[in-house]
């Protein structure tokens, strides 16, 4: 990869450039606690073209969702949506994904047999791509929805 291409892929300027007039960078994640199975049920909804760009960037070769299997998506999300209790990183189980022309829904299950006290989330989806990426996380562990906003200044937050 020559430098020009690298710049093309990596060029993200928050300080000097705004969000483009008609493109905005956001994702929505839903986290629900299933007390019966003692697992977090997570749905991550992203724009499909953003995900393609992000995986293309991290691999260095063009990546297209339509002709790829799910492992690349699972790997990218495993790296960028990380649940922790204290210092322990919780292991995610990939359930699967769905997509339409614009969007992709990824389903991830995280068993937490010990319970969720001290649960924290690191959510850095597309921070490596866009300076203005905003990831909203709707957390429902008690029956009411609480929303958290993750951006580059707040990539890691407590969920409880």
């Amino acid at each position: 990869m020559n430098w020009k291409r690298w710049v093309l892929l990596g060029a993200v300027l928050l300080a000097t450039a705004p969000a483009l007039a008609h493109k905005y960078h956001a994702s929505l994640t839903t986290v629900e606690w299933n007390a019966e199975s003692k697992a977090l049920e997570v749905v991550v909804r992203v724009f499909a073209d953003d995900l393609e760009a992000a995986i293309t960037k991290s691999r260095g070769t063009p990546f297209q969702l339509e002709s790829a299997d799910e492992t690349a998506v699972a790997a990218y999300l495993a790296e960028h949506v990380v649940f922790r209790i204290g210092d322990t990183r919780l292991k995610p189980n990939w359930v699967g994904m769905e997509m339409d022309v614009r969007q992709l829904w990824a389903y991830i299950e995280i068993p937490v047999p010990q319970g969720i006290e001290g649960l924290a989330l690191h959510h850095s989806v597309f921070f490596d791509l866009f300076g203005d990426q905003i990831n909203t996380v709707n957390v429902n562990v008690t029956g009411t929805v609480k929303s958290l906003v993750f951006d580059r200044n707040r990539p890691r937050q407590s969920l409880l």
Binding site: G10, A11, V12, L13, L14, A15, T16, A17, S58, E79, H80, V82, H122, S124, F127, D128, L129, F130, G131, R152, N153, P155, R156
Partner: peptide, 27 residues
């Protein structure tokens, strides 16, 4: 300011999920 992570490695991408972000320095 963008968030920058301290790194013990010289590589830009650390094995951990917290990595120095090239895009955030570029501007």
């Amino acid at each position: 300011a963008p968030k920058l992570y301290k790194s013990h490695s010289k590589s830009i991408y650390l094995p951990d999920e917290e990595k120095v972000q090239v895009g955030s320095i570029r501007p």
